[in-house]
Design a protein around this nucleic acid. Structure first.
Lengths: 130, 130
DNA sequence: TAATCAATTAAACGTTTGTTTAATTGATTA
DNA sequence: TAATCAATTAAACAAACGTTTAATTGATTA
């Protein structure tokens, strides 16, 4: 039998059992941080592009009609969070989606949200979970 | 043949084709707004609870060990966004997940994120898409 | 109708966020 | 090495956010 937590009111719901099995604080913080990354429309656009291609800062800025510093600012946030990886190519820095579980989760969420059909190139076993 | 957008650099990527089929601004704003709702750990906890039960403000506050005004503030945001619905039960107000496509998308995202197994009770055809 | 409990609202506060402009660093090539 | 192009960093600023405390509204019941 699973444990319960005593609540002020008893409405016969699952709430007291749910409260007892609430994931811990750190998990909620990590997950809300991930959602925070895609809660800005500029970052969502950048990720939408990088889920299906890769390119330099200048091209990403041109595609979104945004200034280089503005794009760079968001790319830095996304890279620091571990969602993006970079590769220097001469004068340019090419950004790609990172090869991590978190990045694949975000990829899946974006695909589902925009109802894209992802090609085989995008397929990855860890993405099955969403 | 799909159209392209002229970019400053040509790296032979899909970027110029992607840029031409970028979803419109309003779509990105709507979707980032949805993610903004789950980018706060308190709201994520509330939604995690309400994805699988329903209850009054007092019980939700007790489950999360938070003050009534703080919980009420977030419930208002979630209700105004259309993610939650309410039902007055005497002195209490019971909150439930709304019966909308957006709410089902959020439900799916949360389940996938926390790797919950959703029971039949949670099943809904529109959720198949994620 | 007075008291009580539940929920919401309002005001205030400090914090975080995203953009802009300007300056700087990194790498290539004329 | 001087010039050029790409990218980043820094400072400044307004706007948005989440919590707290205190006051208020809504509904029930003694």
């Amino acid at each position: 039998m699973s444990s319960k937590i005593q609540l002020p009111h008893d409405h016969g719901t699952e709430m007291s059992r749910l409260a007892a099995s609430l994931p811990d604080e750190v998990t909620f913080l990590k997950m809300s941080d991930t959602f925070q990354l895609i809660s800005d429309s500029t970052r969502l656009k950048i990720l939408w592009l990088l889920c299906h291609s890769e390119d330099c800062v200048t091209n990403i800025g041109a595609a979104l009609e945004m200034s280089a510093p503005a794009v760079s600012h968001h790319l830095r946030i996304l890279k620091q969070s571990g969602l993006l990886a970079t590769r220097r190519q001469g004068k340019e820095v090419h950004y790609t989606l990172a090869d991590t579980t978190e990045a694949r989760l975000v990829h899946r969420i974006i695909d589902a949200t925009f109802e894209l059909n992802c090609t085989e190139k995008c397929y990855h076993p860890a993405m099955e979970r969403l």
